[in-house]
Amino acid sequence: MLTITGLRASVDGKEILKGIDLAIAPGEVHAVMGPNGSGKSTLSYVLAGRDGYQVTGGSATYRGKDLLAMEPEVRAREGVFLAFQYPVEIPGVSTSTFLKEAVNAVRRHRGEGELDAMQFLKLVRAKAKALGVGDDMLKRAVNAGFSGGEKKRAEVLQMALLEPRLAILDETDSGLDIDALKVVADGVNALRGPDRSMLVITHYQRLLDYIVPDRVHVLSGGRIVRSGGKELAHELEAKGYAGMGQAA
């Protein structure tokens, strides 16, 4: 699904990613854990194509294509989804208008017909209900005035609607209490499947109790310093990032 080789990236001339190697097979869930400043968010933004993140070396191949050469909207249409750590507030644009534009952009790209207003409403209501997202939230402006939990649920709703092949969850647990975390994790788990891969980026092991990964990688100083099975997350919890040293 995704093969990252020797990926290096800089922000404002400062190198943040110093050679990342990572391969995710279809259906696999990989967790990337690391302390603040280790490059976790940079990795997610580089994969999603945000401006200001300069790739200085290496490659990322997504389903046989050069991911890094695509515009952000093309990556999204091709099935890459980034669940933002801090979903952006867009006052004045209603959530349902935004979702309809996004769903139809992806559908056009896949050669599927656009949904009309009624079809879209039916689809979004069905998906929203499972996540406890009410009609009122769909009418409100995108993320504007949403609580932390509402924002993360809205991200998972977008993911459910766009049906990505590769979902990157950037600190989806940040700012959530345990109940909200369970709702979000249930939503994510419902989307797991043999054709869908996930990259779960988190600071804390807690999220991985609910979204159980196949592989865990420890990111430190812009490099992956250790990789292992799900038990690695528990080891990290016990020893802390300091205990990981630089052993690669």
Partner: peptide
């Protein structure tokens, strides 16, 4: 970027 990351082209995103 948020809108583009959801598949919306830049022209439509700006209009929105």
């Amino acid at each position: 970027f948020y809108l583009r990351a959801r598949g919306i082209d830049p022209t439509t995103a700006r209009r929105l």
